[in-house]
């Protein structure tokens, strides 16, 4: 049944997916690499919620801030320790590095914390529902949509109005040229990783909020979502990622309603078949940029 409540659900899922993809494409912009360790940043955020929430008696908003900070910090550290030193080698080397970082972080969580799921305490707003215009919907949905809008506005301000933001966009266009204008490569790339980590941190609040628990492999789902979304929307622009995320989230909700139960199991494979078909049809995604781009070399 497609109701107004269902639509809000779908839009909320779309917003979350848009955020997830935005974090991945931030790094793609400057490094031209899809970061396989991106899902693990969301995991780090989740464990941040768990650790800070269970060890300290703080208001939830501080716990959430700590989780976001943790994801930012880990994201920056992966760049500092690993990616920075592989950056000028081949794309394949970069991709393998990100896969290794992903494995490292996942198993690090197994080793340091636990293979078992850890319960995360969440504020009431995540489990309550609100009623307006005669429709009752989980408050989490509205919160997701609101935070996404705020974050998109903030990020857009950052990218359009600040020197660093413009430099990030310039680096996405032509990384080598930004360096030839004296813009430090490390500054630009580190900033991209930190922003990506911040987005992953925010995502982790909502992603963990759905199940109220965190496991070492919790980041795998969001990573695959982001892969699909950036392919659908176009990998070379932030706008494309946002559009792709929304389209995918809404499509996913509809498939859930429309597909017969027996085929629902294949939903993921089905989405990836669509991904490959889109790639073959339009390798640059649905939203095309008008200009050619090159990889950091």
């Amino acid at each position: 049944m497609i109701t107004f409540g269902f639509l809000i659900n779908a839009i909320s899922l779309g917003s979350l997916y848009a955020l997830i993809s935005l974090g991945l494409v931030m790094i793609y912009g400057v490094l031209k690499m899809v970061n396989f360790a991106y899902g693990e940043l969301i995991m780090v955020g989740g464990y941040g919620l768990y650790l800070v929430g269970s060890k300290f008696n703080l208001p939830w908003i501080f716990v959430a801030a700590a989780a976001i900070l943790a994801a930012m910090l880990v994201s920056y550290l992966t760049e500092l320790v690993a990616f920075r030193h592989v950056r000028e080698k081949s794309l394949t080397a970069l991709l393998i590095t990100s896969f290794a970082v992903s494995t490292l972080l996942q198993n690090g969580a197994l080793l340091i914390i636990s293979p078992r799921a850890k319960a995360v305490s969440l504020p009431k707003i995540f489990s309550s529902s609100i009623t307006f215009l005669g429709i009752t919907t989980p408050a989490r949905n509205i919160l997701t949509i609101a935070i996404t809008i705020l974050l998109l506005l903030g990020l857009s301000l950052l990218l359009r109005r600040t020197m660093l933001g413009i430099a990030l966009r310039a680096a996405s266009d032509n990384f080598r040229m930004t360096r030839m204008l004296g813009i430090p490569a490390n500054l630009v790339i580190s900033s991209a990783f930190i922003i990506s980590g911040a987005i992953a941190g925010v995502v982790s609040l909502f992603w963990v909020g759905r199940t109220a628990s965190v496991t070492p492999s919790i980041g795998q789902g969001p990573l695959l979502i982001a892969f699909i979304a950036i392919v659908v929307g176009g990998i070379s622009s932030l706008e494309g990622a946002v559009v792709g995320g929304f389209v995918y989230g809404i499509l996913f909700s509809f498939i859930g309603v429309l597909l017969p139960q027996t085929l629902l199991d294949y939903r993921e494979a089905f989405m990836f078949v669509i991904v490959i078909l889109i790639l073959l049809w339009r390798p640059e995604g649905l939203i095309r940029v008008k200009y050619a781009e090159e990889r950091v070399g």
Partner: peptide
């Protein structure tokens, strides 16, 4: 040589 201006800026 290719001028390398930033096209999306």
């Amino acid at each position: 040589e290719q001028r390398d201006i930033f096209p999306s800026l």
